[in-house]
């Protein structure tokens, strides 16, 4: 795309972006030349992939090792009934291709772990739409060491937490140094989840990703947004860099080689 102008179809497709000074043709070109890695193509990943593709983020990577199950369809809006049993990454790619031919999709049908975490490198932004603590700490640590911003979102029944982990701001470990003991915070399959909840939270994550790619607005850096769907309240809570943070503090790790992500994801003295 570099150096090329938007073609007539693109001027039409993205006209509602282009007309705004905050985006304009330059901003739209920037989106088309950008890349985003979405970790998880489930409840949060579905709206993220949907809106990043519609916005014309030109290169989208999708990481997910699961197949579509019928019980996913209550909320995972990019997958359809006919996709049950198919890899989620394939279903996600088909959705994007149908929606917007400007977007290339890289599928990674795998679970992110220490051995393949380097696939994060090279992306302009990472969207953490995963569903477990080991992946979330791994994404935080790997992206921070690589200097890539992360739009983080997580859900629990009727509640959501969203924040943006920018290389110039605090990281997830500044807020929650270690994961809770395995089994103490149940997952969606155990507790249930309101189907539209990940839609709201994922859309906020996609908003943050687009802002980061455009370098526009004021992202949720050093702020955690707490959403309560039942009360319909949004609370924003500031948090600061922790000088003792093992990943972004004064004496940070330089590799994730020795971090054990299976249990509490702890780093350093006293870590499991």
């Amino acid at each position: 795309m570099s150096g090329l102008s938007l073609d007539a179809t693109q001027l039409d497709r993205y006209s509602r972006h282009i007309i705004m000074d905050e985006v304009g043709p330059e901003g739209q070109k920037r989106l088309l030349e950008s890349s985003a890695l979405v970790i998880g193509a489930g409840g949060l990943g579905a709206p993220v992939i949907q809106y990043l593709a519609a916005a014309g983020v030109g290169h989208i990577g999708v990481v997910d090792d699961d197949v579509v199950e019928r019980s996913n369809l209550q909320r995972q809006v990019i997958h359809g009934d006919a996709d049950v049993g198919r890899p989620k990454v394939d279903s996600a790619k088909d959705f994007v291709t149908t929606l917007n031919p400007d977007v290339d999709v890289d599928t990674h049908q795998t679970r992110l772990g220490r051995s393949n975490a380097d696939l994060i490198e090279g992306y302009d932004v990472v969207v953490d739409a995963s569903d477990n603590f080991p992946t979330r700490y791994l994404v935080n640590d790997t992206a921070r060491l690589a200097g890539i911003p992360v739009s983080h979102g997580a859900i629990y029944k009727f509640e959501g937490q969203v924040t943006t982990l920018h290389p110039d701001g605090p990281c997830y470990r500044c807020l929650f140094r270690e994961a809770p003991e395995p089994g103490t915070v149940p997952d969606c399959a155990t507790t249930g989840v309101l189907g539209v909840l990940p839609g709201t939270v994922g859309c906020i994550q996609a908003t943050e990703a687009v802002k980061l790619l455009l370098d526009a607005g004021d992202p949720l850096v050093g702020r955690m947004l707490f959403y309560d769907a039942m009360d319909m309240t949004f609370d924003t809570v500031p948090y600061a860099e922790d000088p003792d943070c093992p990943v972004c503090g004064d004496d940070p790790i330089d590799s994730i080689e020795d971090v054990e992500y299976a249990d509490s994801c702890g780093i350093g003295a006293g870590a499991d």
Partner: peptide, 11 residues
């Protein structure tokens, strides 16, 4: 006084 745990859900 507000008390938050981290949550990890996303599926």
């Amino acid at each position: 006084l507000s008390i938050f745990p981290p949550v990890a859900g996303g599926a």
